[in-house]
Design a protein around this nucleic acid. Sequence first.
DNA 1: GAGTCTCTCAGCCTTTTGGCTGATACGGCT
DNA 2: AGCCGTATCAGCCAAAAGGCTGAGAGACTC
Lengths: 208, 208
Amino acid sequence: MSPITVLLVDDHLVVRSGLRALLGTQPDLHVIAEAASGEEAMDRVQERSPDVVVMDLAMGAGMDGIEAIRRIRERNRSQAILVFTTYDSDADIVRAVDAGAMGYLLQDAAPEEIFSAIRGAVQGKSVMSPPVASRLFQQLRNPEEILTPREAELLSLLTEGLSNRELGRRLFISEATVKTHLAHIYAKLGVETRAAAIATAIRREGMR
Amino acid sequence: MSPITVLLVDDHLVVRSGLRALLGTQPDLHVIAEAASGEEAMDRVQERSPDVVVMDLAMGAGMDGIEAIRRIRERNRSQAILVFTTYDSDADIVRAVDAGAMGYLLQDAAPEEIFSAIRGAVQGKSVMSPPVASRLFQQLRNPEEILTPREAELLSLLTEGLSNRELGRRLFISEATVKTHLAHIYAKLGVETRAAAIATAIRREGMR
DNA sequence: GAGTCTCTCAGCCTTTTGGCTGATACGGCT
DNA sequence: AGCCGTATCAGCCAAAAGGCTGAGAGACTC
């Protein structure tokens, strides 16, 4: 059986060489290229056509991981893409899977888990770290959590620390309307105070 | 000249092997041990007495990096400790330097930067990544922003969305005291509402 | 021993927030 | 035409948060 070719994408050199060393212990896995950015990743995929792309979502400058996944899948469906990232945010998971990622691993995954995820990805199996899976599951179980555009807008401003009055002014609506929207947002997020709403919003989304 | 002995501390195996591979390219740097937790790090220091400890601050379970730095410095001052972490939060930098770290590098630092930081640390020089340095500088310029331990504790709970009453219960203090602390925190953070305090706290610190 | 910092608590008053009920208007879907 | 989701607004009331002043206890420093 011919070896599985892998492209590593991460803006941290240390993580790339760590992964390279780790995968090097497996005779059937060959790292054939590395990339430090989304743009570079697309070039390498074009040139080398790896079987699997192992990608970090958080990339310093330029195109982010999600966008890179989407573009790679757009022009070439033969690669399996595995997300390999440090932090797990609900929004990222959903967006990555949506963009076409085959699996989602956290960086503290056990080596065996990583190997089998790569091997599985080639065969079309999707793998995810247990904590990731449970989050995704929860996300899918609560479809009522989807905010309307207006609510999302409000929530976003809410995380800037604005008061109801300021929110109203900013959105050209009355304070009464602000309160109505907030009540709906709280219900959907499952919280009771604006403080909790802000906390969950910032932590859940990549809002920073 | 005898080589510089190094202990790597990081809960991610991938980062450890990446660093090991990277440092392996330098004849004068010898990685003599690795540790995946604060506790383990202390044991390794005791056993092997490395010249330099390269440590990640964010460690999954158990003792965190800051605490590990403090304890290592307490019982043995001959090690130089270098912080090597992914994210830079203002509070972490101050706390790490306070605990006795000789330098503070971000994981996307260039290899040369890492090497020279390690070599410099042995000679008592402190090194930090430019973005880190500028943050620290800013922090020192605003000394009024430094929260007391109790205030930091409160702020941390605040970001979970607790009410004043809940905060009081959790910390075994009256609601009146909670309000006093909050007023001080708001003043130091330059905000006027708990919402804004939560927003700035979560975004500024690495609180997730 | 006086000054400073930190943590603790109280009372009083204003503003803000949140819960509830009910209402109008617009657009899309059946 | 009727229904539903979304966005808009109002009034009322209770709870929470925030501003202010004042104050005592313990620790640490000069």
